[in-house]
Design a binder for these strands. Structure first.
Length: 354
DNA sequence: AAACTGAGCAACCGCCGGTTG
DNA sequence: CCAACCGGCGGTTGCTCAGTT
């Protein structure tokens, strides 16, 4: 059966709504209430499809709509609900008063999904990281500009400060200039791989940017923790390595502490340099399939290289796991302080703005 | 200064499920 | 039971506009 169109489309107006149309629609709905969308345009004197009227009202004209940036709480709710419900935007919207499914969907597609993409780099146990290339050129995101313009009261800044404080008090430094956006680099991150062993224990492996694949922690897991750790868990983190106080930066810290000189050499802030910390600054793209790691020593700016292939898959298991478990923070505590910190850092990092 | 670029988002489109006659 | 209607939903498109070249 061929469905009849929702309305006669011939002669109907499309595209942006004018203020006059908005006024007509608003007045009509105020007087007659919502519903009967099919007949509404005709009755109200609008040359619009009923669906278009409904959409305009629901997404834009309703009085109870909340405007402006998404709060940290709202963002957190979206992440959590998306992990549970997927792309059921209307369902997610029902948990966010004043927000529409369309608004949340757009926000997800333009902000949150990109964060997840940046956040997750899955690879094989041989341990190579994959991250999306930075944008090459073009305008800065409006969203970023919005945040930039909201000095002082910015929740993003507050979160960044919290993260720095939480991760490592010693590395909380004033923000140096950001790296140029047009650089063709793959930015660095580290990942943790947690593998369940035959005996029920789990091994946490650190895959660093110089491609060492080290088993740093072994812990016994019992009961429900086994279930939690059933899948491999991946994510970036910040860690102060015991030997020599080496610091490996995640994406945000890299953005905060490093920038690229005109010569192409990456530089770190004076504070970072003075603290005698080695920083892995990124993976240089060599060609479509290969990348080279660049490790910058704080003292002499050595650039150490090693080659590797780039893996491609993405994995959202980590976030799903985190958000599906109401007591994830408590669980992390029971898994040991180190990993609690790391994983909490990941969540903080994720919730922060990039 | 103009052209280019791409993020952001409003709006459209087509499909689906529930309801009605 | 079936066809038609209707509202709702998710995916996608395309316009706007500000940053970059």
């Amino acid at each position: 059966m061929v469905r009849a169109p929702c309305c006669e489309k011939v002669g109907l107006k499309k595209g942006r709504w004018t203020t006059e149309e908005d006024e007509i629609l608003t007045k009509y709905i105020m007087a007659n209430g919502e519903g009967s969308w099919r007949s509404l345009p005709k009755n109200a004197g609008l040359l619009r499809c009923g669906k278009s009227c409904r959409l305009r009202w629901i997404n834009y004209l309703r009085a109870d709509l909340k405007r402006g940036n998404f709060s940290v709480e709202e963002e957190s709710t979206i992440l959590k609900l998306h992990a549970s419900f997927g792309s059921s935007w209307s369902l997610i919207a029902s948990h966010l008063p004043g927000r529409t499914d369309n608004e949340i969907k757009n926000y997800w597609n333009s902000h949150l999904s990109r964060k997840i993409y940046t956040f997750h780099g899955k690879t094989t146990s041989k341990g190579i990281i994959t991250l999306p290339p930075r944008r090459k050129r073009g305008r800065t995101s409006r969203w970023a500009m919005k945040n930039k313009n909201q000095k002082g009261s910015s929740s993003t800044q507050q979160q960044q400060q919290q993260i720095h404080h939480h991760l490592n008090n010693e590395v909380a430094v004033p923000l140096p200039p950001k790296p140029p956006l047009e650089t063709e680099k793959y930015l660095s991150t580290n990942i943790i791989l947690m593998e369940e062993q035959v005996d029920g224990s789990s091994t946490a492996s650190t895959i660093t940017n110089d491609h060492k694949h080290e088993n740093t922690t072994t812990m016994c897991v019992e009961g429900e923790k086994e279930e939690i750790l059933n899948d491999d868990i991946w994510g970036p983190y910040v860690e102060e390595v015991i030997n020599g106080g080496e610091l490996v930066l995640n994406f945000d810290d890299f953005m905060d502490h490093c920038w690229q000189e005109a010569s192409g050499v990456w530089t770190i802030s004076d504070e970072q340099r003075e603290s005698n910390i080695n920083i892995v600054v990124g993976n240089e793209k060599v060609d479509d399939d290969m990348c080279t790691n660049v490790i910058m020593s704080s003292g002499d700016h050595d650039r150490l290289h090693s080659s590797s292939s780039i893996a491609s898959d993405l994995d959202q298991n980590l976030l799903t796991w985190l958000w599906e478990d109401e007591d994830w923070e408590k669980d992390l505590q029971s898994l040991g302080e180190i990993h609690s910190d790391k994983l909490k850092a990941m969540v903080d990092w994720f919730l922060s703005s990039s």
